[in-house]
Design a protein around this nucleic acid. Sequence first.
DNA 1: ACGAGAACCTGTTTGC
DNA 2: TGCAAACAGGTTCTCG
Length: 277
Amino acid sequence: MPELPEVETVIRGLRPRLDGQRLVEVTVRRAVLRKPVPENFARRLEGRRVRFITRRAKYGLVHMAGGLVLLFHLGMSGRLRLVPADKAFTPERHDHIVFVTEQGDRLAFNDARRFGLVDLVDEDDVASHPLLAGLGPEPLGNAFDGAHLGARLKNRRTPIKAALLDQRVVAGLGNIYASEALACAGISPRRGAHRVAPARTARLAEAVRQVLTRAIEAGGSSLRDHIQPDGALGYFQHQFRVYGRAGAPCLTPACGGTIVRIVQAGRASFYCPACQR
DNA sequence: ACGAGAACCTGTTTGC
DNA sequence: TGCAAACAGGTTCTCG
């Protein structure tokens, strides 16, 4: 499901209900997701207070009192469902972990495909965590611009679309927003990464920023899995220029092209052959 | 060393 | 209608 905007949206939905709350009960209903749930996961969290929640790439980081950090990733199908204290809670199929806060809210980590994961890490070790250490810069941060992108692309012979999905190049893009950013920048997903000229690298970096920023403003994209913790849907999917639009007309003014779907590195890419070169 | 493809899972949609 | 194949917002391992 989730790329950077969806994870950001989920975290923003959690904060009002979780910040400052003590976790009074944690239940692990399935012990193995993409990786095994850490030993003593529930015991290490129970009784501890949530200080604040941050995001790195597609990972959520729940900073707990005492310097412990709960790291989570939603994989393809993961969601977090927040059930307020005054509503009845029944565990659903694929609710793998359930958290209960001191004010009685229940938070279910639900993930049908189990590509998601959770881990516990000391806050001093977050940056060196194996899953986080190799990540490239945050696309919405200061370290990401055309110069950085150009430097990371110049030796890559893979298609630019595949390079954008490489989390070491830029952290947080996924299959939807890679296609969308290339459409905004007028670059074909098939172009070799090393053949994107410097001027266009800057334009691409700007397109990445813009697409992600707008998607966050829209609450992410709800296609099949993504919902906010309170059940609200994202609506950025209505602003897609190319994703899922094979056979439909290109939206670039006066272009007249037709969007096509191709497969690259096993993943669908969408683009307009007329205005993306 | 790099890149393509397979594998990991389950649920839903598509096509014969 | 029914069943099988294809496909899905991700990551990581293997193989050439």
